[in-house]
Computed example of a mutant assay.
Amino acid sequence: MPAATGDSHTRSLSKAISWRVTGSVDTFVLSWLITGSVKFAGSIASIEVFTKIVLYYLHERAWALIPLGRPRR
């Protein structure tokens, strides 16, 4: 069922995954620079990819219910 914005669950999930790939690369690079360890940076990026997909998806769906900034119909 589409959200109030017209985005389907599939679209919201796809956006969450594409954003997470971008975010995980960022997390990996920053972790590597800070720790100096590719292995440790990979561990951090691997764990956060799953938790943040779920958090982003829930955040996206919650915002779909909020009319703030949308034109009135």
Rank of each mutant, 00 (worst) to 15 (best):
G6E: 06
D7F: 15
H9A: 14
H9W: 05
R11H: 12
R11C: 12
S12Q: 10
S12G: 11
S12A: 00
L13R: 08
L13N: 13
S14L: 15
K15G: 04
K15I: 08
K15P: 01
K15H: 05
I17T: 08
I17W: 04
I17F: 15
S18W: 12
W19C: 05
R20V: 09
R20W: 00
V21S: 06
G23Q: 08
S24V: 10
V25S: 06
V25H: 03
D26S: 13
D26P: 11
D26I: 12
D26L: 10
F28R: 01
F28V: 01
V29L: 13
V29K: 06
V29H: 06
L30D: 09
L30A: 09
W32V: 04
L33K: 00
L33A: 11
I34Q: 12
I34P: 09
I34A: 06
T35F: 06
G36H: 02
G36F: 02
G36R: 05
S37Y: 01
V38E: 05
F40A: 05
A41L: 02
A41P: 02
A41C: 07
G42F: 03
G42Y: 01
G42P: 03
S43H: 12
S43D: 12
S43V: 11
S43I: 10
I44H: 03
I44Q: 03
I44Y: 06
I44K: 06
A45R: 12
A45V: 00
S46V: 07
S46I: 02
I47S: 05
I47R: 15
E48R: 13
E48Q: 11
E48H: 08
V49R: 04
V49G: 03
F50R: 04
F50N: 11
F50Q: 03
